[in-house]
């Protein structure tokens, strides 16, 4: 992003502060509330115009919930979501609707994200019609232009989704997301279901569109190699919290938080000559219904010490524009000697 652009609008396009989303669990004969799924539990980040922020983490870490909460597909439990300086999480539906054209979504499954009974023209035109932005032949022109943008033939307009392959369907979903002239597109595992060669096509398309249209992307993914390829900044989530947030080079070059390091080292490298030192995490991700006390990662962390089990570490600036939530950053003195050596290694 150029400097002048940053100065022109210093305020971030999307700002999320202390976002929480708890899903109640109903049970018992009377269907009363018996607990909560703490899917997202206090998440803050911001995205600038034309920037890609990626949310990465394993299944159940709450990354998709963040995306849907930002889109207001359901009400949030606590926190604030600001779009271009305007708070949107508490807006009534009527006032929220005009703002919807500024943020759109591309979902993971290209087969269930398009209504099988609509023609492409109607699918892509839906947001344009909703906001009364065009009609008649002008609408057809717009849909045609959008198909050009995602590199599909214009004649495809009159066909149904089932006539297209997974990659082509994902292009259709991207065209729909671009239709109302959005500033922000939330890509919820948008390339995860695609084959390698098709994935590359879609990733390149997204990067090109971003450069061309100045889009901001919230890229939600578990695929770290893809994320490294197209992102500007990365937030790593674990059990509903961000544990590390940094720009691409910092995070992938020198991963800091113990979880980030384990995550990166677990990715298989497609080069048989590289033999890496691997941090293998023991056990499974705990349930978000009953998250561990203190640091949520302490049950699997190779560097755990007493304080981790009782006190929750805060996300704080640890230099180089990096935010990390780990007690090791703050009180290295209290860390037992053996652990400190392990960290240094």
């Amino acid at each position: 992003m150029s400097n002048s652009q940053t100065q022109a609008s210093s305020r971030p396009l999307l700002e999320v502060k202390g976002l929480k989303k708890h899903f109640p669990i109903h049970g018992g004969i009377l269907g009363g509330k018996v607990g909560n799924v703490y899917a997202v539990d206090g998440v803050s980040f911001s995205i600038n115009r034309g920037e890609t922020l990626s949310l990465v983490g394993e299944s159940g870490c709450g990354k998709s919930t963040v995306g849907k909460a930002v889109l207001r597909l359901y009400p949030i439990t606590d926190g604030e979501v600001m779009l271009d300086g305007r708070r949107v999480d508490n807006l009534p539906a009527g006032e929220l609707r005009p703002l919807r054209k500024r943020m759109q979504v591309v979902f993971q499954d290209p087969f269930s994200s398009l209504n099988p009974r609509q023609r492409l023209r109607d699918i892509i035109a839906e947001p344009i019609v909703n906001f009364g932005m065009a009609s008649g032949s002008e609408l057809d022109d717009r849909v045609g232009d959008l198909l050009d943008k995602v590199r599909l033939p214009r004649e495809a307009m009159y066909r149904y989704p089932h006539e297209f392959s997974g990659g082509q369907r994902q292009r259709i979903a991207i065209a729909r997301a671009l239709a109302p002239g959005s500033d922000l597109i939330i890509c919820d595992e948008a390339v995860s279901a695609l084959d390698v060669s098709v994935k590359a096509q879609i990733v390149n398309l997204l990067s090109d569109l971003q450069d061309e249209l100045g889009l901001a992307l919230l890229f939600i993914s578990h695929d770290l190699a893809i994320v490294e390829h197209l992102t500007h900044r990365v937030a790593v989530m674990y059990l509903g919290k961000i544990v590390e947030l940094a720009d691409r080079k910092t995070l992938f070059g020198t991963p800091h938080h113990p979880y980030t390091r384990a995550l990166l080292s677990a990715v298989p490298v497609p080069d048989p000559t590289v033999k890496r030192q691997r941090i293998i995490l023991r056990g499974d991700v705990p349930s978000p219904i009953n998250p561990p006390s203190g640091c949520r990662f302490h049950t699997r962390c190779p560097f755990v010490f007493d304080r981790c089990k009782t006190e929750e570490p805060q996300l704080r600036d640890v230099g180089m524009g990096r935010m990390s939530a780990c007690h090791l950053d703050v009180v290295p003195d209290q860390v037992p000697e053996a652990n400190r050596q392990a960290v240094a290694a």
Partner: peptide, 14 residues
Amino acid sequence: EQPYVEAAVAAGTR
């Protein structure tokens, strides 16, 4: 719960 319905909600469909 289908993604295409969620996408329609996000697209401002009433």
